[in-house]
């Protein structure tokens, strides 16, 4: 079923307050084969110039997934999650978040386009800000929703 583009663009995705946790960063490091001490050991992180364990470059995407039901907006658009593929992902960095930081994420669906054979591309943008309101990172996802075969 085709996504209702107007409904998607009008979606009000609630802001997400995300806390960066040391344990979660260590788990992410282990799961991604990251063994460098500055990503798992606080003293090593500080020696490397970070305030605490640094958020690795792609972990901002995982912060988005701390929402109670991060795929709820897709369900609201009547998308079958089994048909969703991750097509593209980008990050821009304005600052460096570390463990202990409380960040706010604002997300919005910015585009839905229909490709061949009913395939649809949904683009979502997210900004990550610190408590002072300063931008830490911007990220964007393109989700590919495969058509009924």
């Amino acid at each position: 079923m085709a996504i209702d583009r107007e409904a998607a663009l009008a979606l009000e995705l609630p802001p997400l307050e995300a806390e960066v946790e040391r344990g979660a960063l260590r788990f992410f490091a282990r799961a991604t084969g990251e063994e460098r001490p500055e990503y798992v050991d606080v003293a090593a992180a500080r020696a490397a110039g970070f305030r605490d364990l640094p958020v690795p470059p792609t972990y901002y995407f995982s912060l988005e997934l701390q929402a109670a039901d991060p795929f709820a907006f897709l369900t609201d658009l009547e998308v079958d999650l089994r048909r969703v593929l991750h097509g593209e992902q980008w990050f821009e960095y304005a600052g460096q978040a570390c463990a202990g930081d409380r960040l706010t994420l604002h997300s919005r669906v910015v585009d839905v386009v229909t490709k061949r054979a009913g395939m649809e591309l949904l683009t979502k943008h997210t900004s990550v800000t610190d408590p002072s309101g300063a931008l830490v990172s911007r990220l964007g996802s393109v989700l590919v929703i495969r058509g009924e075969s």
């Binding site: 991604t32 470059p57 792609t58 593209e88 960095y93």
Partner: peptide, 24 residues
């Protein structure tokens, strides 16, 4: 993409990274 970010940050410190993008 997490593996790829390891490739980049072991070569250049993470604080130099301005952007990272990927097509799957």
């Amino acid at each position: 993409l997490a593996y790829l970010s390891r490739l980049v940050t072991r070569w250049a410190p993470q604080d130099r990274l301005r952007s990272l993008s990927a097509r799957f």
